[in-house]
Design a protein around this nucleic acid. Structure first.
Lengths: 135, 135
DNA sequence: CTTTGTGCAAACGATTTGCAGGATG
DNA sequence: CATCCTGCAAATCGTTTGCACAAAG
């Protein structure tokens, strides 16, 4: 996604386009490894300081509220973030912890009417655990 | 599961049977709502003090290490615990947050060889989000 | 009696918050 | 120029740890 599109996306959601917001969102868009806040901050501020920790937290929360970013919970203690909003599943290597996206179409669609009575399912995610290619 | 069976389970795993351990494990066995540490502590110490917070954390970690209890991550910020060690899926109500078990057999088994190349899947869990009967 | 478990309080790490100054539309 | 955003430091919350005493086998 290029510069103008990113700015457009932010404006569409009614957000002011600040350097910090642009940096966080653009960065997340070009990563697919679901970084933690710590990793995001390290990358952004690698050369010159771009954003403080508090702002990154605030920005992620804002982006989450407007639906540009999602939180991924696959590990105890830390939240990871993902700008890929299309439905997809996750693979987690039990040795190195690396997380890989699995296309939604990799598995046949589930029938959510097969749930226990009283539960109305709307969406689902499959989490697969195993060993990745590098381990 | 009755008293003697619980004690036997703990001994089988090489654990000393203390009142605190018995209380935490027995309590988890009779709940199916995946309580947080805070909830476990509140229930146990409702009438008389049974166990301190530090001990509950230590106990849960021990029970997890020997395979009598598992940690469930479905929410940001808190860990939940589950003494049901049989494979099963989870349903989470997006309104009240309540978590319900879904029997493993509710969905047809997935073919884990359909993963992207290089990934060797070993186990999986399905997380369904929706609305529960009380909401 | 040796080893392991418990409880307290302090430490820790991720995340949140209050607030003053700064930038955006 | 009104509103919203940023950065700093302090606060908060769940969880972990160090250590002395107590209990289990």
């Amino acid at each position: 996604m290029k510069r103008e599109e990113i700015i457009e996306k932010l404006k569409e959601k009614g957000l002011r386009v600040t350097p910090q917001r642009y940096a966080v969102y653009a960065h997340l868009l070009q990563r697919n490894d679901h970084p933690t806040v710590e990793q995001i901050m390290a990358s952004l501020n690698q050369e010159v300081p771009v954003s403080s920790q508090a702002t990154i937290y605030a920005t992620l929360q804002t982006l989450r509220e407007v639906g540009l970013v999602r939180e991924v919970l696959l590990e105890e203690g830390v939240s990871r973030y993902d700008a890929n909003m299309q439905p997809h599943h996750h693979f987690r290597c039990r040795l190195c912890g690396k997380i890989t996206d699995i296309p939604f179409a990799a598995f046949p669609p589930l029938d959510l009417t097969a749930l226990p009575p009283g539960l109305r399912g709307e969406r689902y995610e499959i989490i697969v655990e195993g060993i990745c290619d590098r381990c």
